[in-house]
Structures are given as structure tokens and as C-alpha cells.
């Protein structure tokens, strides 16, 4: 578990500053609460390309991989300031 968490912390270092900031928030407040299966899924999600990942997290793009949807929803719930960007 410890190792997975540490690995997640490094993999959250990205090419896009937006993601660095987003994950800083998540790591500070919520990482410790994740169980092993959730952590494994999160690590899998982190294999995504930066732009795609950011679009999923900020809600402008649907997550089309069923296996990731719960993780995306969790991250949005915990670290995104708002998830209701749609609907002008």
C-alpha cells in the first residue's frame, strides 16, 4: 500500500501544470483514504495522456473507459472545484 501510494505521488507529476495542481490537492486531502483496489485503478488511469486526462477530470470530455469511470468520478468529487461546467 505504502509503495503504491508513493508510486502514485510520482506518477501524478505530469507535463501539464493543470494536472500537477489538481493532484496536489488530491494527494494532500484524500490519497490516504484510498484502498488498494482504488489505488491500482488510479495508477491505471494515470497511464492516460495528459490532455485526455485533464479533459476527463475537468468534465469537458466523457470518460469512455468503463473501468476508469468510478475513479474519474471520485477524483472530480474530491479535488475538482466544481463538476458542473456544462449547461450555460
Amino acid at each position: 500500500m505504502y509503495e503504491l501510494r508513493e508510486k502514485m505521488k510520482w506518477r501524478a507529476r505530469r507535463g501539464l501544470l493543470e494536472l500537477d495542481l489538481f493532484f496536489t490537492r488530491f494527494i494532500a486531502n484524500d490519497l490516504d483514504a484510498l484502498g488498494e483496489p482504488e489505488l491500482e485503478k488510479l495508477l491505471d488511469l494515470l497511464t492516460c495522456d495528459d490532455h485526455e486526462l485533464w479533459a476527463m477530470l475537468n468534465g469537458t470530455q466523457e470518460c469512455e473507459v468503463p473501468h476508469w469511470q468510478s475513479t474519474v468520478a471520485l477524483l472530480q468529487h474530491k479535488a475538482a472545484v466544481t463538476t458542473t461546467l456544462a449547461g450555460l
Binding site: 507529476r13 505530469r14 507535463g15 501539464l16 501544470l17 495522456d49 495528459d50 490532455h51
Partner: peptide
């Protein structure tokens, strides 16, 4: 130190 396609050039 990071996966190649996650280098900062991606920005």
C-alpha cells in the same frame, strides 16, 4: 524521470 510523452513539451 517521467514517461516520454508526459514531458513538458506536451504543454
Amino acid at each position: 524521470k517521467v514517461f516520454p510523452t508526459r514531458s513538458h513539451t506536451v504543454a
